[in-house]
Design a binder for these strands. Structure first.
Lengths: 309, 309
DNA sequence: CGTGGTCATATGTCTTGGACAATATAAGGA
DNA sequence: TCCTTATATTGTCCAAGACATATGACCACG
């Protein structure tokens, strides 16, 4: 096992072993080896025992490739282009749109790395608009703009991380401030394994809590079996799943359909998020929510239908 | 590519492919294969194309093995013992099977799935103890007990998810309630790719903020390159990384050493968390924090050393 | 013109068995 | 008791092959 430390100390040039590259790019060791075999890139140096040593430029190019593949390009088509070309593809992908004026001030503070004032701007927007409008307008708008800017490489990774953390702080703060009354349904809120985006879930939780529903939030990536087991334990009326555009629409619909078959008919299954925004129809007994208005409407409908009990 | 979803859905009996086992136990695919070759465990079934299908009992035993190895046992010595024996070794290790009395009430509410009262109990503990004691005593104690219970299979997956969400809500609520920055250093707070545990980071952020430091929290899994780029952007004085016991000590120390070489000498590098609790020494210029007292001491030392400027 | 189905290709993950570096343990000597 | 050296243990890497799934192209149908 050659540690990164050794390789960096022995020669001043920075080299990375395959485990470090997997960690930094998210590409598995198997993928890295098979790309080398099939496409000839990356073709790292070897140490005295034939173990791969990747260079920093290789790492940069691999990161660009990862970005473009996530956006929908095929590896085989782009892997042999130069780093400069790839970089250009990313900046050319989305025309440089400036954010809508009501968000521009907040985004400016983020891009200027002014943490304190960024935090305060978010808090002020929340105070001014109230939770519902803050979530459905400001946070949704910011998410959209930041997501696009991230794909286009116009925003640094660490800025995106900081944004996500602060939005989480604000939303969770707002959620906990709500009184815990329970006139509405008990809603179990989570995502399936592979879906790591938390902000969408928190937005839904904020809206539902504000509307008086009782949320049981399990965070992201709960295995289906465990969702099934949680339903009786928490006496849940509705299971709501969130799917960001990181997951394919097919996978999202399949997951919802499977969950539907596992749960008793009395428990409703709702699905929403970017991956389902363009979906036409789901499995029978699964409700698709394409907007926050849909969500509030679904809640109202549940209350009407279950008024007798 | 067989997804975990498929293997769990297609047959009602729960089977897990090797990628799912890697994800759930933290043991690499290579390790799982070499254990099978050398020790004969785990010896999973195969599907129609000779791919491994692990059973749920295998998964349980692997979890116990992982825990005992983390405590210092050698794989070869314990791998062929029965699950019951391993389970007994763990409970023998921790004399207190029941949680300490001051935590028992809170844990009971979690295990009884009483969401509202669980939330209120946490809030009350926070009010009563103040943020510092709440974090270093209550949250640390709960983490420890829940972590052990989870690894020993005494607590449901969804309960652990719910716990994590609520602790996050409370901690982020407390963090945002702090007044702005004080006199302390600017501390960049994050974890390296592969380290997904958020609660430790939030605990540190809460303590640092309470002590008057200005935190720049990037959440989990920030690639090293992006940490390097964030340091000048946010004019950071200290980079603090968290490593839970999900990562090996070797990997944690290597990551810290690599970061040290990438950052200017004026920027301090701190590391802490379960993975480093038993580490002897780190690379030169890297400070290991083995407790929250160490953290507060390091903060004080920084203030003294940087008082003149 | 859109919708759905079939086929070919592209792509990622899994397989085996061998090799060896890093780590832990044991043994020896100051 | 502490440090050094030898030995055993253990995790990671390698190679090339295989194949399931995802994607894209083509075609037929309403």
């Amino acid at each position: 096992m050659t540690t990164i430390l050794d390789s960096e100390i022995d020669s001043q040039a920075a080299f990375y072993n395959i485990a470090a590259v997997e960690r930094d790019t998210g590409l598995s060791k198997d993928t890295l080896r098979v790309w080398e075999r099939r496409y000839g890139f990356p073709k790292p140096q070897r140490d005295q025992h034939d173990e791969r040593l990747y260079s920093l430029p290789d790492l940069e190019k691999l990161r660009l490739l990862r970005l473009l593949i996530d956006y929908g390009h095929r590896p085989g088509k782009i892997i042999n282009r130069s780093t400069a070309e790839l970089s250009q593809m990313i900046s050319a992908r989305t025309p440089e749109k400036s954010p809508p004026p009501e968000l521009a001030a907040i985004i400016d503070l983020l891009l200027q790395h002014d943490v304190e004032r960024f935090r305060n701007a978010l808090l002020q927007a929340l105070m001014k608009q109230g939770l519902l409008r803050f979530v459905t307008e400001t946070v949704a708008g910011l998410n959209h703009w930041i997501g696009e800017a991230w794909l286009a490489g116009r925003i640094a990774v660490f800025d995106e991380h900081l944004y996500s953390e602060h939005i989480q702080n604000i939303l969770r703060n707002a959620i906990i401030a709500q009184p815990g009354r329970g006139s509405g349904p008990r809603v179990l809120l989570t995502s399936l394994p592979g879906e790591k985006h938390r902000i969408g879930l928190l937005m839904v939780e904020a809206v539902l809590t504000a509307e008086g529903a009782a949320c049981v939030a399990l965070g992201t990536e709960t295995p289906i079996i465990d969702i099934k087991n949680a339903v009786p334990a928490y006496r849940v009326d509705v299971v709501a799943l969130s799917f960001s555009s990181a997951i394919t629409q097919t996978a999202a619909l399949a997951g919802l359909a499977e969950l539907r078959t596992l749960l008793p008919a009395a428990v409703e299954v709702w699905g929403g998020g970017g991956a389902l925004a363009r979906a036409r129809k789901a499995a029978p007994g699964v409700l698709l929510l394409r907007s926050f208005d849909d969500l509030r409407y679904a809640l109202e409908r549940w209350r009407v239908e279950n008024a007798q009990r």
